[in-house]
Amino acid sequence: MGFSPRQAPVFLAAIFAPSILLVGLFIVYPVVNSVGLAFTDASPLSSGRSFVGFENFVYLLEDGEFWEVLWNTVFIVGAATIIATAGGYGLATLLISGIRGAAIFRAAIFQVWVVPWIVIAILWGWLFSQDYGLVNYLLMQVGLIEAPVKWMFDQNASQWAIISGYAWRAIPFIMVICLAALQGIPSELVESAAIDGASFLQRQRYVILPLMQNIILVAALLQAVRFFQEMTMIFVLTQGGPVNATMVLSLYTYKTAFEDWDFGLASAIGTIWLILLMAFALFYVRVALRRNLA
């Protein structure tokens, strides 16, 4: 289907010109140029720059801090993605099970997705405030903790405070995608399984989940990619602390570039990030998605 490009070369050139210009100048060129900078000691503070080979990469790979940041990123993004995916899918399953007022619940939950990140950052600072925070109050009421937790000053607690914010914000997105996909499952399939005596859990396990697997994986991947880029909460709440506990790759690259003004080293971090992402994407497409299609 479609028209032949030969029919209208000028028209085609005209309609593609704006995006080619934008993408070429401000995505392709910067990526290529920054990867190049990773092999230099570039800094806006000094006028000259010299080629240093793999020095930046060697420094990073030998530096314990970099591995720490990498692990924190994987942990925070991974935990938040898993919680958001499980929560979003669970909610979608509940909402589609024929309860009354599902549309109202869906609309209400969707409001969470509308809250700007800067607002979540400030709000989480208040919710997780040590002395007057609602989270400490509720946890103590329920009896889960005995004394107020110093959320932003404890390494483990601060990670979970950030993870909870990420997961909270992403649940509606996963829920909406899962709802749409669940609505697409032919009801005969589920009903015939029910007639054959499959319990609710068996229907989930053997009928619905296999059909949903790919969509859940794609939604989770999209969300994880977004989490990788996101850093407003961490920037506002912890600046990566305490003791680098919430230092993630995006903030680490940003700080190296625009606080230490070490463009060479920052580019090297970004380049490793890019390589890891590509490897992960390849693995994801090859293994996770292909296996499910087969």
């Binding site: 401000f26 995006s250 463009f263 970004g270 990030w273």
Partner: peptide, 20 residues
């Protein structure tokens, strides 16, 4: 689709130099 995942700070480094 892939460009969505490009590290934004990596883009920003070269964009900053360009914008200067």
């Amino acid at each position: 689709m892939a460009s969505l995942a490009f590290p934004i700070p990596l883009l920003m480094i070269s964009m900053y130099l360009m914008f200067v």
